[in-house]
Every structure is written in C-alpha cells, then in structure tokens.
C-alpha cells in the first residue's frame, strides 16, 4: 500500500526541525514511523510534508540525575526496556516498554511518538501518567513543560501542538519505599492494550502512603482510578486490601468505556479490576 505523495525533509538538528515545522503548514513530524506510516499507508493521514526528526541527536538518550530520569523523545521502546537506569528508577516504564508490540516494533517505535500519537490503547501514556512524568516541548513560543495530567487532552490529542516538538520526558526516579508495575491484557494480533494498568505505590513502615493507578485501553485518555487509589492509602497492602481497592475501579471509569469488535465496553470494564489487582500486587512486591 502506498501513501499519498508528500515532500520529505530531513532535519539535522532540533532548531532545524523546529524551523522546518513552522515554515511548512500541514507538515507532520516523523520519528520511528510506527504509528504515522501505517496511517499514511491506509490514507487515514495524508500530510503534504513529512519532516524526519529520526536523526536529530538532541532527542536521543537516557540520563539519570537530580532524582529524575530524562528520556529523549527518540528513545526506542527497545532502548527503554534494555536500560538498567529505567529498570531501577521507573520499573513500570521498563516493564511496559518491553511489552509494546513485538521486538521489531520496539526496535523502531519511540517513546515520543507513542505519547504524541496518544492512541487510547497505547501503554506508555498510562505509565507516564501514573509515574507523574513531565513533558518538555519546543515550539514557536520557545520551550515549555507540561505535566502528564494536562498532556493527554483527548483521543489522539495532546498538548503537543501542530508546530511543536516533544523533546524530552522527565520521570521522577523511584523514591524510597516506592514500587511500580504495569499489567497488560494485549490484543492477540495488534498487541496493543485491550486493558492496561500502571500502578505505583509508596510503602512506609508497612503502610501504603501514596498510590497511583492509571488505566489505558478503556477510555479516550489515560484514566486515573481515584477511588481505587484512595482505598489503598493508609492500608497495609495485602491480597484483601488490594482486591477491595481493585473492586472500586468501575466507579472511576464511568460510562465512557470504549468497546470494539474484539472486546466490548462491558467486557473491558469487567476485566479491568483483575489487571488493577495484578498491577498493584506487583508494585507492592517491588516497593523498597
């Protein structure tokens, strides 16, 4: 399948990418191409200009300093999954990145493209929301930073504007007593999340002092399970308290759960508590 014709421009630096994006209305940025190219092949997207940022050096690399992981937008899922720093400082992110699609997809797809595309079935938006990530963006007005809670605006709609480039993602490094995990029910063909749950807990003296639970696959943007989180805080994390908290996610999801030919909204809502329980149990077992 061939995409519609377009002009191709390759940016060598971030400044060049930004300038090209501003000079070419209707242009789309191309990173790993694993969301954009499939859409272009099906002609669901037909940009007139494609700006390849795949070789921009400033957008690469993972570093850990000052209590935060800084991850370049072009970091691939494979690089994330293989990084010892990510595995230690952001366990759920490491786990989720290792379960994106399949090995070939992970070799090309990037964290920046994943969140900028913001497919409701994508894994990383939920994980980065649960871990309290900050997104750094360069645009016509200069640089700005957006919290995860304000980043995902709607289905495939984020704080990254038409002329913006997402440059880095900052993830707070694991605090003392913190553990996080990602549990996923994957679609057997696409391997996207039918239901995905990112959980992060902080345990102090045997008691859960903070919890975040965020789901994907069910709603147009990552869904925070507030009642589930509240039910955990102040409790010792046992099978029983975790199961009780997981049972509350239905109220958090509301009536906007998405369904498709593979899994209806009712089915997704019914299995969600199972994956919440698994994610929280795994997070609790890693809390140290």
């Amino acid at each position: 399948m061939y995409a519609s014709n377009f002009n191709y421009l390759r940016a060598g630096t971030l400044a060049e990418a930004s300038a090209l994006l501003q000079k070419n209305p209707g242009a789309k940025v191309l990173a790993g191409g694993h969301s954009l190219i499939p859409l272009m092949k099906l002609r669901l997207a037909s940009p007139t200009v494609v700006i390849d940022i795949g070789r921009v050096p400033e957008l690469r690399g993972i570093s850990l300093s000052g209590g935060a992981l800084t991850i370049g937008a072009l970091t691939t899922h494979a690089e994330l999954a293989a990084s010892a720093a990510v595995q230690d400082a952001a366990q759920a992110l490491s786990e989720a990145a290792g379960h994106v699609g399949d090995p070939a997809v992970r070799n090309r797809g990037t964290i920046g493209g994943n969140v900028a595309h913001a497919d409701p079935a994508s894994d990383l938006p939920a994980v980065l929301t649960a871990l309290g990530a900050t997104f750094h963006i360069t645009g016509p007005g200069g640089r700005r930073s957006v919290q995860a809670s304000d980043f995902f605006k709607g289905m495939m709609n984020t704080a990254v504007g038409e002329h913006d480039i997402l440059t880095t993602i900052e993830v707070p490094a694991r605090a003392a007593g913190q553990g996080s995990a990602y549990a996923k029910f994957e679609h057997p063909a696409s391997r996207y999340a039918v239901v995905g749950v990112a959980a992060c807990v902080i345990v102090n003296g045997g008691t859960c002092v903070a919890a975040s639970i965020v789901l994907c696959g069910l709603t147009s943007t990552p869904a925070r399970a507030k009642s589930g989180e509240q039910a955990l805080v102040g409790q010792a994390l046992t099978r029983e308290t975790i199961a009780a908290a997981a049972g509350k996610v239905g109220t958090d999801l509301g009536s906007d759960v998405l369904g498709d030919i593979f899994a209806s909204a009712e089915y997704r809502a019914a299995v969600a508590p199972v994956y919440v329980r698994r994610a929280v149990e795994a997070a609790a077992s890693r809390a140290r």
Binding site: Y8, R10, L30, G33, H34, I37, P38, K41, V50, D52, G54, P103, A104, V105, N107, R108
Partner: peptide, 13 residues
C-alpha cells in the same frame, strides 16, 4: 543489524 518491519519504514529513512 537490527530487525525491523520494512513495510513500516520509508526507503528515505
């Protein structure tokens, strides 16, 4: 040296 799906990559890339 790294496996990838050549249907999901532009030749120019």
């Amino acid at each position: 040296g790294v496996a990838m799906k050549s249907c999901t990559c532009l030749a120019v890339q």
